[in-house]
Computed example of a mutant assay.
Amino acid sequence: MRILIMLIILSVIANTAIGQRKDVSNYKLFRTSFDKNFKFPAKLKTANASIFAVILLTFKKDGKIDKLLFSDGAPPELISEIERIKEKVNFKAIYDNISINSPNIKVLIPIQVDALRMAGGGNPIPQRDLDKMYLFQGKPILGECFFYPSINLKYYYNNYEKQ
């Protein structure tokens, strides 16, 4: 009896792991295409900027992007860069991953970029950006949302140089 119960448990675990592979591979498709094309804007890098912003997506029924919005705290340079690469990034993998049944569902993708000093520590994200993190065109998000895994990036700058 114990062997039978153990076999059932192992079967459920194996099937669960196989069922989750699609999610992982779709996330990987999205993330690989994003990482391959995204270049952190030089102006933000020169300013040693740390960023936290949110991308809001809605999809058409065919999986193409209907709307691509940015939280009000997103720097214009970041917005320009993502607009530049949006045709090269596999956003459809997100659509396939979460199986959207309603066109009203919004997908939120947090983006965090940390500027880290070579001597340790980092630069804080300005309070004004945090206050605007979930505002889009001055308004809070309404309706159902799906939080997609965040994009976390880090870069180092030399704070030993004389300023």
Rank of each mutant, 00 (worst) to 15 (best):
F38S: 03
I151V: 12
P124M: 05
N15C: 08
T58I: 04
M1L: 13
N48D: 12
L142K: 15
I51Y: 00
K162P: 00
I94R: 06
A49E: 10
M118C: 13
G121F: 11
I85F: 00
I9M: 12
I82T: 09
A115D: 09
A14Y: 01
K43N: 14
I51S: 07
Q127V: 14
K106E: 03
S11P: 00
F52D: 13
D72A: 01
V107N: 05
F146G: 08
A47Q: 05
I111G: 03
L10F: 12
I125T: 13
N37V: 08
L78V: 00
I82E: 05
D62G: 11
Y157G: 11
K86S: 11
I94H: 07
K106H: 08
D131Q: 07
A119H: 15
S99N: 11
Y160N: 11
F34M: 02
G121I: 00
S33I: 00
L7F: 12
A74F: 04
K162N: 06
T46C: 11
L130I: 09
S50R: 04
P140E: 00
D66I: 04
A119W: 02
Q112D: 04
K45I: 08
P103W: 05
L142F: 12
N97R: 08
L57W: 03
P75K: 00
L44K: 05
P149E: 14
N26W: 01
S150R: 15
N26P: 03
E161N: 15
P75T: 01
P103L: 04
K36M: 06
N159G: 10
V107E: 08
D72F: 13
S99G: 08
N123W: 09
R31P: 02
K162D: 03
F34K: 03
E161K: 15
I151F: 01
A53G: 07
M6K: 15
L108H: 00
L69R: 15
L142R: 15
Q163V: 13
L69N: 15
L29P: 00
K28E: 06
K139Q: 12
R84E: 02
G63W: 02
I13T: 06
D23F: 05
N123Q: 11
A42R: 14
D72K: 02
K36T: 12
K132C: 02
K88E: 10
T58G: 06
F38T: 06
L130R: 13
L29I: 01
N15T: 05
E87S: 15
K86G: 03
V113S: 02
L108D: 03
Q163M: 14
L68M: 13
Q20G: 11
I55L: 14
I82R: 08
I141N: 07
Q163E: 11
G63C: 06
D96E: 14
F91A: 04
V113Q: 02
S71R: 03
D129P: 11
D72E: 10
A53R: 04
V12R: 05
R84Q: 10
R117F: 09
F146A: 10
L56Q: 13
K28V: 00
M1A: 14
P149Y: 14
S11K: 07
L142H: 14
L29F: 08
I98Q: 13
S80D: 11
L57I: 09
P41G: 01
I100G: 03
A49L: 06
C145D: 12
Q20V: 04
A42Y: 12
N97P: 05
E77G: 09
K39H: 05
A93S: 01
K92E: 03
L7W: 10
P149I: 02
A17V: 09
T46A: 15
A93F: 01
V89L: 01
F38P: 09
